[in-house]
């Protein structure tokens, strides 16, 4: 009998022994990129950026003004990310449920919300929230948070579902054979492994959340991009201002990416040792 490989293809790559350059190259690449960017924006050329125009941006008052926007952006994104993750997990499990009355609403939610522009969701939430005053948070911020949460939950539900179905069947069977109930199996065995597998994709979606907070501008939020607009109108230096704003977004998402890498390096998910993989491979080849 030919034993089937228990997992999807990538698990079949035999572990390589080459030097891992990535941790060295990434920061170097980023530094080079940052050095080049001003020239891409046309530093010193006719109609391009001018060094003198950077000066007002580094005044304390300007930096404070922009930093407040950055804090707003990061907080709104963080709340949306943190709330959307458990929601996404529930919808992923819902879509995999054997019970129609759980599965169909989950599919409807995921497919429905995923296909709408975030902009539309933000508008909708803004008008849906009416005109009352809210404690702790402004109405426009809340509208952005809810819209981004709902959207990200729908998108990431599919990502997490992909992670779950990519696990070998044997993981489910081993958990069941030990007498685990469904919630116990999911919590202790299946979800921890699924999250590790799809982490890069989840983080990619989270960087989208950070960027999409800028859509709040249309309902008048005070997020980073909008504050950049206010700043350059005073100083008449749009190119330079947006350059600084771009770097701020970049730094936030770069940090997110680094966190992702760190977690990925910690994972140990090669299910079969090398000699077993080789034996299965040899068996299959005859």
């Amino acid at each position: 009998m030919i034993p089937r490989p228990p997992t999807s293809r990538p698990e079949w790559r035999l572990p390589g022994r080459s030097v891992n350059w990535e941790p060295w190259l990434a920061p170097v690449g980023v530094a080079l990129l940052l050095l080049m960017l001003p020239f891409v924006f046309g530093l010193g050329r006719e109609g391009g950026m001018e060094l003198a125009n950077f000066e007002p941006l580094f005044r304390l008052s300007t930096l404070q003004f922009l930093a407040f926007g950055l804090v707003w952006t990061v907080s709104v994104a963080l709340v949306a990310i943190l709330v959307s993750l458990p929601l996404a997990t529930l919808f992923a499990l819902g879509r995999l449920s054997g019970r129609g009355f759980i599965r169909w609403p989950s599919i409807a939610y995921i497919e429905g919300i995923r296909s709408l522009p975030v902009l539309l969701l933000i508008f909708y939430m803004f008008f849906r929230l009416g005109s009352g005053q809210l404690p702790f948070v402004s109405k426009d911020a809340l509208a952005v948070i809810i819209a981004l949460t709902l959207y990200t939950a729908a998108v990431n539900a599919e990502v997490i579902r992909a992670g779950i179905v990519s696990l070998p069947k044997g993981q489910f069977e081993a958990a069941q054979a030990l007498g685990m109930t469904y919630p116990r199996m999911m919590q202790s065995v299946i979800l921890p492994q699924s999250f590790r597998r799809v982490l890069p994709t989840l983080i990619a979606q989270f960087t989208t959340v950070v960027k999409d907070t800028s859509l709040g501008a249309i309902i008048g939020t005070v997020e980073l991009a909008q504050r950049g607009r206010i700043v350059f109108q005073g100083f008449r230096n749009p190119l330079e201002t947006y350059f600084v704003v771009a770097i701020m977004y970049f730094v936030v998402n770069f940090i997110l990416g680094r966190i992702s890498l760190r977690i990925q390096r910690r994972r140990k998910t090669t299910p079969l040792p090398r000699e077993v993989q080789e034996k299965l491979f040899a068996d299959e080849m005859g």
Binding site: P6, A175, T269
Partner: peptide
């Protein structure tokens, strides 16, 4: 139960 492919929890 013991399986052909062990099915240990890799994490």
């Amino acid at each position: 139960m013991v399986f052909q492919l062990f099915n240990l929890f890799p994490h």
